[in-house]
């Protein structure tokens, strides 16, 4: 969190931005945290794709992160990754990122929809697949026919590369 920067010189860095204690959060999550990451806006925890619900539930219920602000899915050379940008309605400056890397061969992760309803659409947008196990893929693969999967119309879903489906 140390490198969170404010763009505007004349603005004081809000006090609260520093109040997220990532060590405490790490303790809370225990050994579900594979690795810590630092993004410019907030610290992040890398977790296993199967731990999404447990981790997010802990963060929501015990640390008060009740706002799933955004879900980003992207493709790396060796993996797909989805980032859950969490925040609080009560204090927007407290942020935490949950990073879920997933295998290229079998890209999926647990859905966050039971924790945050809004994840339903975000995950659909990210994956282009809505039914069954909420696979988290950043690119349409051969078996992911969107029409068949009942995605949002099968048109223009986005996914890492932004190719129209």
């Amino acid at each position: 969190m140390s490198d969170a920067r404010e763009p505007d010189s004349e603005l004081e860095v809000p006090e609260t931005r520093e109040t997220v204690d990532y060590d405490e959060l790490a303790d809370l999550l225990g050994d579900r945290v594979i690795r810590r990451e630092d993004h410019l806006n907030a610290g992040g925890f890398v977790i296993h794709p199967g731990d999404v619900q447990t981790v997010l539930r802990t963060l929501r219920d015990e640390a008060g992160f009740d706002h799933l602000s955004c879900l980003t899915a992207q493709e790396y050379e060796d993996r797909y990754e989805s980032i859950y940008h969490l925040s609080k309605y009560a204090d927007r400056t407290q942020e935490v990122n949950v990073i879920v890397p997933t295998d290229k061969e079998d890209p999926w992760n647990e859905s966050a929809a039971p924790i945050y309803k809004t994840a339903e659409w975000h995950e659909r947008e990210a994956s282009g697949q809505a039914t069954g196990r909420r696979a988290e893929r950043t690119r349409q693969s051969a078996h992911g026919d969107p029409a068949e999967d009942g995605v949002t119309g099968g048109r223009g879903l986005e996914h890492g590369l932004g190719v129209p489906v």
């Binding site: 949002t152 223009g156 590369l161 932004g162």
Partner: peptide, 16 residues
């Protein structure tokens, strides 16, 4: 059930 995507213009891709 809203069905979206009719106005998709690849804005993210264009920015990339």
């Amino acid at each position: 059930e809203p069905d979206i995507g009719y106005l998709h213009r690849c804005e993210e891709q264009m920015c990339q």
